[in-house]
Design a protein around this nucleic acid. Structure first.
Ligand SMILES: [Mn+2]
Ligand SMILES: [Mn+2]
Ligand SMILES: [Mn+2]
Ligand SMILES: [Mn+2]
Lengths: 217, 217
DNA sequence: ATTAATTTTTAGACAAAACTAAAAATTATA
DNA sequence: TATAATTTTTAGTTTTGTCTAAAAATTAAT
């Protein structure tokens, strides 16, 4: 399997699990910053290998073989991110691009030994679940901070947007995985939220709140 | 720089440092298990980028830019091998192929953090020197076991052949880096050697002895 | 010094993965 | 429902890295 094929599978996996339906050629092209015609070419190749279900003009989905390949790539990506943060002391906004490369290293033994070395983590530095060696994923109960109602209290357990920009903003506000977050009030004019993070009160926009996952206490 | 370009540079580096002279198209082709015509194509491209000195039919050598690129790839290869053995508990005969992949990961920050995480090792699991972040190499005094004379004593500090086959043979004979090796006698008929490894005496062929580096005590 | 053998380069082809431009199919709109 | 807009596919190129077969240069052997 080539890097390119793996990247397509991973993208289709993310798009289908997000929307829970067939995914369009254009959606893939946009996500991968490539042209629709290139996507079509690749879909034919992946269909030939029975990794995707593809019928012209009908959108695409992963076969079970394709899904399990995709999960293994996601597993590798997230385990390497844990390694980079936990062992090499990278910050959570620096690891994605390096993991994009490391996820393509081929060795089942390597990834399983890495998994053990890291004490079999179930979530990556951004709170995303890590599939185990059989591809099983432990889903945790979580919801967007923006969906809470006043006076509810939760713990920050993940981010939806994993861009370096957003993560650095969170660092600046001292919001991290594990932070206790109390929803104090909502400003109806612009939907901004007044929250308390650990001891400190601050105001955040609705855009911020809708990219933060919390687990209710 | 592509994987392929990196692999060519690394091969030219190894061949030129071994023979200390220009290297031929055929030598590169043989080492890389590819065709001479493919090598010629690549040499033109590398010359265009000023990474090699190349004149038709005259053999090739690395420019200083090419040499420093090559050393960085070797540095990455060997640091990853240390990681695999020291942290992930691989044995020394299992790490080469995985390191062949890992050496192409692009991130200076990654490799320097890995270096620190491993406590800045100067040799890899096979006794080969690891260039530091400026490309400097600390050469250690070593010679082939086959070149010793009777009754000389040394410590095993490296292997010339790093094939899995040879390394497993050494494991079986309980010869490892750090083993004390005494040259007892030489059988003139087949050049085989009688040696003592730590406490145990054994006979090894000249071929084995000429693939083991020792440092005299 | 020719001729023969070997090495190296060139010429032309191919597969992978991308692109542009144009055609075809689908979906939306009047 | 006919037409317009959008999406998707096809057709034809390009780049990278490989290959085979043949030509050219170098080296070895009569
Ligand atoms: Mn990531
Ligand atoms: Mn992540
Ligand atoms: Mn190696
Ligand atoms: Mn090594």
């Amino acid at each position: 399997m080539t890097f390119s094929e793996e990247n397509y599978l991973k993208t289709i996996y993310h798009l289908t699990t997000a929307s829970d339906s067939e995914v369009s050629t254009n959606a893939i092209a946009e996500r991968m910053e490539t042209k629709a015609s290139s996507v079509t070419d690749m879909l034919k190749k992946l269909a030939e290998k029975d990794l995707v279900n593809y019928k012209k003009y009908q959108g695409v989905s992963l076969t079970s073989a394709g899904k399990s390949e995709a999960k293994m790539i996601v597993r590798k990506h997230r385990l390497w991110e844990v390694f980079l943060v936990e062992k090499l002391d990278f910050s959570w906004d620096e690891v994605h691009d390096i993991a994009e490369q490391l996820e393509h290293i081929k060795s089942e033994q390597l990834i399983n030994k890495l998994d053990d070395f890291l004490d079999n983590p179930t979530e990556d530095p951004h709170g995303d679940p890590i599939p185990d060696r059989e591809g099983r994923i432990v889903k945790i109960e979580k919801q967007l901070l923006s969906e809470l109602s006043e006076n509810q209290v939760g713990v920050c357990v993940g981010v939806k947007d994993t861009s370096s920009e957003f993560l650095k903003y969170l660092d600046k506000q001292e919001i991290a995985l594990g932070s206790k977050i109390e929803f104090l009030s909502r400003e109806s004019f612009d939907l901004s939220l007044r929250i308390r993070v650990d001891k400190k009160e601050l105001t955040i926009s609705n855009k911020i709140a809708s990219n933060l996952f919390v687990k209710l206490l």
